[in-house]
Write a protein that binds this DNA or RNA. Structure first.
Lengths: 130, 130
DNA sequence: CTCCGACGATTACGTTTGTAAACTGAATGC
DNA sequence: GCATTCAGTTTACAAACGTAATCGTCGGAG
């Protein structure tokens, strides 16, 4: 019960881990220290915490390491778009029965849509029609 | 370290708990056994599991109990719309910097929007303009 | 050549979650 | 009345998470 599947990257990324991923999607590769520079204050973390998260993400196959001298450079192996996609879908499935329209309706109803959002969405819709 | 705040219902609802909430939003009040009838097969749960989840939800203030003879009737204390709202916002904040338009764009791009979704959204947009 | 400091690796530890068995008290059939 | 049954409560326990301290090692400063 130790050899888990290491190739299929379907491992779930937790919220804390996600913060680390964001830093690396923003810019990569980065060392552990650099990642910490980018997230530690915001989250109130210390370096050991970041290192743990990095290790777990490597174990989950979400990050790749490349040795640079005696330290590692970390790079995402999964694309942000893919992650965002699965997470979005999860939510839509769980809360809106897989339909996006109710989500939109909900956002609209709860004032979560700004004027710009609406304009942007109209633009996208127009574009889709072409 | 035992008396947690019992009035403010900001407690986080986990995924398994959410399934129970859905059953009760669908129809309430219900007994534990009834809830189980509605979710146990789908999730492969046994009654004890449902009971645990119900208790935790009561502890979190998400459900209210009303004694009916020797058993309890469970009723949600929070509205589904409120839950859906906070969860949606969480996702939009976390993944799209709080902007709904990028979420929409993403759904559109990834084919997650059906023709009906689009029609429905156009309808909603038209309505909002009025 | 030796010691220090910087890294990753290992270990830690409390909490939450998923999943459920054991316990306890009350209602109910005989 | 007393045993069985059935509800809720308590306890259990492993995995995941959040957060971090400690260990072991390797390379660079003296």
């Amino acid at each position: 019960m130790s050899e888990r599947d290491e190739s299929l990257s379907a491992e779930r990324i937790s919220e804390a881990e996600h913060a680390v991923m964001e830093a690396l999607w923003e810019k990569s590769p980065q060392t552990a220290a650099e990642v910490c520079d980018n997230v530690c204050d915001r989250r109130g973390w210390s370096i050991p915490t970041v290192k743990t998260l990095l290790s777990r993400l490597v174990a989950k196959g979400a990050l790749a390491t490349e040795p640079q001298g005696r330290r590692f450079l970390y790079t995402p192996t999964i694309e942000r778009a893919a992650y965002v996609g699965t997470e979005s879908r999860r939510l839509v499935d769980r809360l809106f029965g897989g339909r996006a329209a109710p989500l939109f309706a909900h956002l609209a109803e709860s004032e979560a849509l700004s004027a710009e959002d609406i304009a942007e969405i109209e633009r996208l819709l127009a574009e889709m029609k072409k």
